[in-house]
């Protein structure tokens, strides 16, 4: 289980990511900021899962299920969007 300082540090990082992400969006970089926003979201979500939900200390089975879910979401997005991208 992470100690309190780690959790507080994660919190600060999350807030920082939120700030940067919002700032980037305001820069109006065309479609570039969309990619950056999503990357920041993945990073934040990863931090919450890894530290706050302490998957870091979770069993292999839990990691497998968490990772597996991400893969299935990617299948849905990847194969689904592929239709519109190639129409």
């Amino acid at each position: 289980m992470p100690n309190r300082m780690t959790l507080v540090a994660v919190w600060l990082v999350l807030l920082a990511l939120l700030g940067i992400s919002t700032w980037v969006a305001l820069l109006r970089l065309g479609s570039w900021h969309a990619a950056l926003n999503l990357i920041f979201a993945v990073a934040s979500a990863g931090a919450v899962v890894w530290f706050d939900m302490h998957l870091r200390k979770g069993s292999g089975t839990l990691k497998l299920f968490a990772g597996g879910t991400v893969i299935f979401l990617f299948i849905m997005f990847g194969f689904g969007l592929a239709d519109w991208l190639t129409r």
Partner: peptide, 24 residues
């Protein structure tokens, strides 16, 4: 309860950029 709570937060972590940012 904590796991559930944090999951709901993660949903928002993705909803926020999807709704408020990416198409701005």
């Amino acid at each position: 309860v904590g796991l559930y709570w944090q999951f709901v937060d993660i949903v928002w972590i993705f909803l926020y950029p999807t709704l408020y940012l990416v198409s701005r």
